[in-house]
Computed example of a mutant assay.
Amino acid sequence: MFSVVQSAIFNFQSLLIVILLLICTCTYLRGLFPSIIKRRAGFLGTFWKCARIGERKSPWVSAFCIVMAVSILFLK
């Protein structure tokens, strides 16, 4: 009768997609505008940490993005 919509917190694949998009977006923005993401503490420090993960682990992040894209396109 009613359709239940799950948020990204309760669906593991959606949670991984949100995390990967956050890492990629923070890394891209830091590359374009380094002064935007420069705080290391507090709530904005989370974005700095995501950008740092994207910079240092970029082969792994890109591999996970490819795996998630294949799983979304062909397995869903």
Rank of each mutant, 00 (worst) to 15 (best):
P59V: 09
C65P: 00
I19H: 05
I36L: 14
R30Q: 12
T27K: 01
S35Q: 15
V67D: 02
L15M: 10
S35M: 11
I9V: 05
G42E: 15
W60V: 00
L44H: 14
F12S: 08
K49S: 10
F33T: 14
M68K: 02
L16G: 05
I23K: 07
C50Y: 03
I9Q: 03
V70P: 00
K38Q: 12
N11K: 02
L32M: 14
P34D: 03
F12C: 05
M68N: 04
L22D: 07
L20Q: 08
V67P: 00
E55L: 11
V70R: 04
L21I: 05
A63I: 03
T27A: 02
G31E: 11
R52W: 10
M1V: 10
F47Y: 09
R39Y: 10
L16W: 03
F47H: 11
F47E: 13
L20M: 07
A8N: 06
V4M: 08
R52Q: 14
R40A: 04
F12N: 07
N11C: 03
F12H: 07
Q13W: 02
T27V: 04
I23R: 06
L20D: 08
N11F: 01
R56L: 13
W60L: 00
L75V: 09
V70H: 01
F43K: 14
F74S: 08
Y28G: 06
A41D: 08
I66H: 01
I72W: 03
L44F: 14
P34Y: 02
Y28W: 07
Q6D: 13
R39S: 13
A8W: 02
C50L: 12
Q6G: 08
F10E: 00
K57G: 01
I23F: 11
P59I: 07
R52G: 04
F43C: 09
R30E: 05
W48Q: 14
S62A: 04
W60M: 00
M1K: 15
F47D: 12
M1R: 15
C50K: 00
I72S: 05
L15D: 11
M68F: 05
V70E: 01
G45V: 10
T46D: 07
V70S: 00
Q6F: 10
S58A: 06
A41W: 09
R39P: 02
R39M: 13
S35R: 15
L75C: 12
A41T: 09
T25Q: 10
Y28S: 11
V4F: 05
L16D: 06
K57C: 05
L21K: 13
G54Y: 05
T27G: 01
I36G: 01
F10R: 00
L20V: 03
G42F: 11
T27S: 04
F47R: 10
F33A: 14
Q6H: 13
L29F: 06
K49R: 13
F12K: 10
L21R: 10
K38D: 12
G42Q: 15
F33C: 11
L75E: 11
S14E: 09
G31S: 11
L16H: 06
L73D: 01
F2R: 15
G45N: 08
F43P: 06
C65N: 03
T46K: 12
R30K: 10
R56H: 13
I36M: 12
R52A: 09
T25F: 05
C24L: 11
G31D: 10
Q13Y: 03
T27R: 01
K57L: 04
R52P: 01
T25L: 09
L21H: 08
L44I: 13
T46C: 09
S35D: 15
